[in-house]
């Protein structure tokens, strides 16, 4: 593996379609009107530009998230929390057997700088990678402006609970109109009656109304914090643009509507289960799987994470079982 120690982004002049090409270690990235092409010393790969940008948007915005962000079955990243692996075919049994897989490790800030530049350069004015397909324009064509406001959205991360003092605040019509698929979600507020002097500790808000106003999809955002226990609800529509490979157990609580999860072996991609979640359903996702969700209608999903930084090592070394409970 190569460890790049500088933060220089290696980008070309615009190609015939107006897009810069990028080199990161021995990886090369190029896009044209419809597709993104990735090359490495032992192979190459092609992805639809819209799917690539949706995946890269999550990887950048989540700072490489927990564990593995598979852009698809071939290309992706592994977060080591300080460094990041960029891989091709590493978690694909066929590529491994053919010895076409390739992994390079980078300082997080280096790979992030390149990804941010790529995302900014390759996202046209008409396209919002965080929006559902019905709520954004085309990702395709020659370079046509940019959408920096969309691709540099601030990640919502409450420190205690949404609506608390000096914390994330409620969403309003002025900034977050109710989504078309959640027009029927009640917008009432809880009755909150603090005694004088206790205004900072007597707090409540309407989480479902808050979620109904989310302008993005498949983007878990922290709304409440109990030490390392994080509630990260998100609104889901169409397909999760990444296949998330776990480095710890995570949990899903279906708050509304329905999501279907395709669950595969994290390391080989072999199919393991299909999990259908309806309102009130709770399921754990073991530490050695990867999953991709399908939401026919915009749905509210509570992703529950344990942010304890020691967990990846404990699971990777087998000191913890990959599933949360024995019974």
């Amino acid at each position: 593996m190569t460890l790049l120690m500088d933060t220089n982004v290696i980008a070309s002049e615009p190609n015939a379609h107006g897009y810069a090409e990028f080199t990161l270690g021995e990886f090369h990235f190029r896009r044209d009107e419809y597709f993104v092409y990735v090359k490495w010393p032992t192979g190459s790969h092609v992805m639809s530009a819209d799917a690539f940008l949706r995946a890269m948007q999550r990887d950048v915005a989540w700072n490489f998230f927990y564990g593995i962000v598979n852009f698809d079955g071939v290309v992706g990243t592994v977060n080591h929390y300080g460094t990041v692996d960029l891989f091709a075919g590493r978690y694909n049994d066929a590529y491994r057997k053919a010895e076409m897989d390739h992994v390079e490790n980078f300082q997080s800030e280096n790979i992030k700088a390149t990804f941010e530049r790529m995302l900014a350069d390759w996202t046209n004015a008409s396209f919002d990678p965080f929006a559902s397909p019905e709520e954004t324009g085309s990702a395709f064509g020659d370079k046509n402006g940019s959408n920096l406001a969309a691709v540099t959205r601030r990640r919502v991360a409450s420190r205690r609970m949404v609506s608390c003092d000096d914390d994330e605040q409620l969403r309003t019509d002025a900034t977050h109109p109710i989504n078309r698929m959640f027009a029927d979600v009640a917008q009432d507020s809880p009755l909150v009656e603090p005694e004088p002097g206790f205004e900072s500790d007597v707090k409540a808000y309407n989480l479902f109304a808050y979620l109904s106003r989310s302008d993005v999809t498949w983007n878990p955002s922290v709304v409440s914090v109990c030490k390392d226990s994080l509630y990260c609800p998100t609104t889901e529509e169409y397909i999760l643009p990444i296949i998330h490979g776990n480095d710890r157990v995570e949990w899903f609580v279906q708050l509304s509507d329905e999501i279907i999860w395709a669950v595969e072996d994290r390391d080989t991609g072999a199919a393991r289960t299909r999990v259908v979640m309806k309102p009130g359903d709770v399921a754990s996702m073991p530490a050695n799987i990867r999953h991709q969700g399908y939401a026919p209608k915009r749905a509210m999903l509570l992703v529950w994470e344990n942010a304890d930084g020691a967990l990846p090592e404990l699971y990777a070394t087998g000191k913890l079982p990959s599933h949360p409970v024995d019974f």
């Binding site: 669950v263 359903d281 709770v282 599933h323 019974f327």
Partner: peptide, 23 residues
């Protein structure tokens, strides 16, 4: 309430700890 479920291909459903809050 209507429960979904785990459809097994090659795994043990107990690893998914699947329940329903209302149930």
């Amino acid at each position: 309430y209507e429960k979904g479920g785990v459809e097994i291909i090659d795994d043990d459903p107990k690893r998914y700890t699947f329940s329903n809050i209302f149930d």
